[in-house]
Design a protein around this nucleic acid. Structure first.
Lengths: 248, 248
DNA sequence: CGCTTGTTTGACCTTAATCAACCTGGGTGG
DNA sequence: CCACCCAGGTTGATTAAGGTCAAACAAGCG
């Protein structure tokens, strides 16, 4: 198995914004770029884990398929992210291009050699994995306690954060994935995703513009509705305590 | 943040049984043991991450609390597991003793020094983190697609596996945690946990013996009901293909 | 022995899944 | 160029799984 890495895209912890191009990414800079078209598979669940990848442009989905055909998307990857950084013999998930993608490939052997040699590379990998683990825990929290609306709000906030980290100044978030991708990521159905987005629009919190773009109109409200309790506040904070709410 | 570690307890991947006392655990062997009584907090979400722990005996729960009081248990730790192995400045979760617990403590500074010095310690840590990541992904799959019965069956199977790895020869699984702990771990309510266990008992798949012990009567059936599709088979495998089932 | 906390069971209700119909927009080919 | 096609998306009606509320029951424990 291996760990899908997340440059900043999966980093949901507020306060850790700085986009330091880690020494990790530098590893790939001299390697040739490869291209994938939308829908192509980069790595396949069960295959021998031979390479580590750096995503240069485009987006991918990371997923597993259950025996009965159900699909679970455990994450999305975007430009700057690293993929396949693991120390297991086989990949435990599939990675598929959502948009046209360019990547750089490093053999796992070289990767491990570089780590053994370079003194500051080890810590960089540890940090990276810690970030991923934190993101995984956030996702577990989302999946075990949040309702449909909270899930969508959390998702949109994270995508907004990623967009802003990438240097954008606006609040228009690009969502390259389909509704089905979002549904499989949030543990919902496409109908519920669609309905919830419609509801958020009619509440004036967001504004959809085509299938793959959403404008965040009220970020504070969105953060409040995400249900993380005082974690995402920026320019808005409720003076009144939230009502009791213990059950699921 | 940091990563809750899992010696073998969170390792759900079949085929990776061997309980090698890693070089990681050797790090702690010379340190003094500390005791906690049931209910005591070992580490607190938000505190500065100063130590790494090795669980010698007993069990702990790892959880986060949402703003509105909801609790999400992201894992359980048992004898042999390592806790707090992370490279973040603050703990992102709380660890609380379920039973009386004894642990050994290593300062994070020492831990990082040891890693920098010892050549085979780095890879051990990487592997550990990869295992944890795999376990986290399994949990995401469970939380996003499985129904109550499948969740309970998956949980019981994992606990059985852990019991067997620990050297037991029987199929009586000890569950030190309460129903509420199980519910908060599986994203259910205590009522649903209770009802589902009752149902599994009446189906003859398990047999409860007191609050903290469950006997697995039909392991193959349990594996089938866990919904992982041909992943946990041991001595039993259905000849007939499963019916189509794509939706959540 | 009698609390207190944890667990089970029952009745009812809410949320999101399911089933189904219709809409939309970006190609493609006549 | 436009009609049609079709995958992806939206909206509506209904249902079922599991949450909620409530009450009774069990098991430690002081």
């Amino acid at each position: 198995m291996f760990i899908e890495s997340a440059g900043n895209s999966l980093r949901t912890i507020p306060g850790s914004f700085a986009v330091q191009p880690t020494s990790l990414q530098a590893l790939f800079s001299k390697l040739p770029a490869e291209s994938l078209s939308a829908g192509q598979t980069l790595i396949l669940e069960g295959d021998v884990a031979t390479s580590v990848f750096h995503v240069v442009t485009g987006s991918l989905r990371i997923f597993r398929i259950l025996g009965d055909g159900r699909r679970v998307i455990t994450g999305f990857l975007h430009a700057g992210d690293i993929l396949g950084m693991s120390f297991k013999s086989h990949y435990i998930y599939t990675a598929e291009a959502i948009t046209p993608v360019t990547i750089r490939r490093l053999s796992r052997k070289s990767f491990e050699n570089e780590i053994a040699v370079s003194p500051d590379l080890g810590p960089a990998v540890f940090h990276q994995m810690s970030d991923e683990m934190a993101a995984a825990q956030d996702q577990m929290v989302l999946l075990s306690t949040k309702n449909a609306e909270e899930r969508l709000c959390s998702f949109l906030l994270k995508e907004l954060q990623r967009t802003l980290n990438a240097g954008a100044l606006q609040t228009a978030v690009q969502l390259p994935m389909t509704r089905l991708d979002i549904a499989d990521y949030l543990g919902l159905t496409i109908e519920t995703v669609s309905r919830t987005l419609t509801k958020l629009s009619s509440k004036g919190v967001i504004e959809t513009a085509g299938r793959h773009s959403v404008k965040i109109l009220k970020r504070g409200k969105l953060a409040q509705m995400a249900g993380d309790g005082d974690e995402y506040e920026d320019d808005w904070r409720p003076a009144t305590p939230q009502p009791e709410r213990i059950r699921h």
